[in-house]
Design a protein around this nucleic acid. Structure first.
Lengths: 171, 171
DNA sequence: AGCTTGAGTTCCAAGATGCAACTGACTATG
DNA sequence: CATAGTCAGTTGCATCTTGGAACTCAAGCT
């Protein structure tokens, strides 16, 4: 069976998962962010099988996350670079870092640190609300239908309403 | 062959991928965040096979993302709730939303909106640096080894140095 | 007794994965 | 000239993983 896809899903998370919901795609994007561009380099740094790498790279190119660029002729050779969409995808990986650090390592034992290349200062990624600058606490969020939410999914609308009720009750 | 895992990797992203690098895990966590707790409810909302759901739920419980709680005896019935770790994992999903909205939907056609349940205002998640509050642009980041970075991986250290050099050259 | 709810199992065919070896076009070196 | 690389993929396999659907088991409802 083919893996399930979520192209038509009315959910930004589900559609992101179509790109990032896999173990290699995020790591390939990480490598690209770290400056890797060539097939062999991806293969060596990641320890991924060459056949799988071929497939993932072409999927990522198809999805517009990477760009396949010829860097020499005779023989033709190609490398892969993050597109603008790829940079945005990389943001999601950056959001994984505090999670991974906190829960998958001993406290204070992060393996990698991020720095701002203009100032050299350390960077600590954090999710906030763009308007207020307040840190986001998922327990204070509730979802509601947006402009593209399908009209016929009234069951889900009800559900959002119910979720709202519940979230108010518990408060 | 078993799917590759990254438990020992000196990379927070790789270790997060061990939990979130899959199409169902993120969606199960999304559902949990939306208030779903029961097996059948997960199954119906997600359209996931019951066998796969069983496996994913128990993996997520093992990893400490979900908690399996008995909510009745005779017959024994269990439900699944997000732990604190689960809430942190959900933050990563929240970070996927702006990406998905921007790149996987027509502009202005988001399917779902987030609100703050205390104020009712819309929430727009954004990644910033915790110190300065500046939005994070991945092109201005570079990685360096942290306290838990393996001493023997000098090749990677060199690579970080090279990446730094490159990032300075390009600036 | 017979239907329903809820949480799982069991079976199976079709894919997907990891691993290793193999191409094919060139370039660099002794 | 011959032999080694370099680089970007393919090809072949044995083994897992998936998705889908049917089946189980306990208990409550009617």
């Amino acid at each position: 069976m083919e893996r399930k896809r979520f192209e038509g899903a009315p959910c930004s998370i589900a559609r992101s998962v179509d790109i990032l919901g896999d173990w290699w795609a995020p790591l390939i994007i990480r490598e690209a962010l770290y400056g890797t561009r060539r097939f062999d380099a991806f293969q060596r740094w990641l320890g991924i099988g060459r056949n799988i790498l071929t497939k993932r790279l072409s999927q990522l190119v198809e999805q517009g996350v990477l760009e396949r660029v010829r860097y020499q002729e005779k023989p033709e050779r190609f490398e892969y670079r993050l597109t603008e969409k790829g940079n945005d995808a990389a943001q999601v990986l950056i959001a994984m870092m505090p999670f991974g650090e906190r829960w998958q390592f001993e406290p204070g034992h992060e393996p990698i640190r991020l720095f701002d290349r203009r100032t050299g200062d350390r960077v600590h990624p954090m999710l906030v609300d763009a308007e207020t600058g307040e840190p986001i606490d998922v327990e204070n969020l509730f979802p509601g239908p947006g402009p593209a939410f399908p009209a016929d999914e009234s069951i889900r609308r009800e559900r959002f309403a119910e979720y709202y009720r519940r979230s108010v009750d518990e408060a």
